[in-house]
């Protein structure tokens, strides 16, 4: 359940990336244009989402320990 909720964040973020409402907004925030500040914030939001994916939805079944030696030689 948690896993699906976190997966759902990805398409939501993708939609939020298209910030049409700031397209022609020339406001400055701390000296930077708001259209740039928004996307810097977006990078932090992406990092947070990845944090959730990694800590709450990690694919544990993928781990292969050294003991599990390659079963076949590639050819």
């Amino acid at each position: 359940m948690t896993r699906k909720l976190i997966y759902a964040l990805l398409p939501v973020l993708y939609l939020l990336h298209n910030d049409l409402w700031l397209w022609n907004d020339a406001t400055l925030i701390a000296g930077l244009p708001v259209g740039l500040v928004y996307h810097i914030g977006f990078c932090f939001a992406a990092s947070l989402t990845l944090y959730l994916l990694v800590t709450r939805a990690w694919p544990t079944h993928l781990e292969v320990l050294d003991a599990d030696t390659p079963e076949t030689e590639p050819s």
Partner: peptide, 30 residues
């Protein structure tokens, strides 16, 4: 927005869903 912030979302997501699986198969099958 065009070239950087979208990569910040897409690239690590590809690593998460695809990179880890490729690694796992690579390790298992050599």
């Amino acid at each position: 927005a065009l070239m950087a912030s979208i990569s910040a979302l897409v690239i690590p997501s590809v690593f998460f869903f695809i990179g880890t699986r490729v690694w796992s198969l690579g390790k298992r099958h050599g």
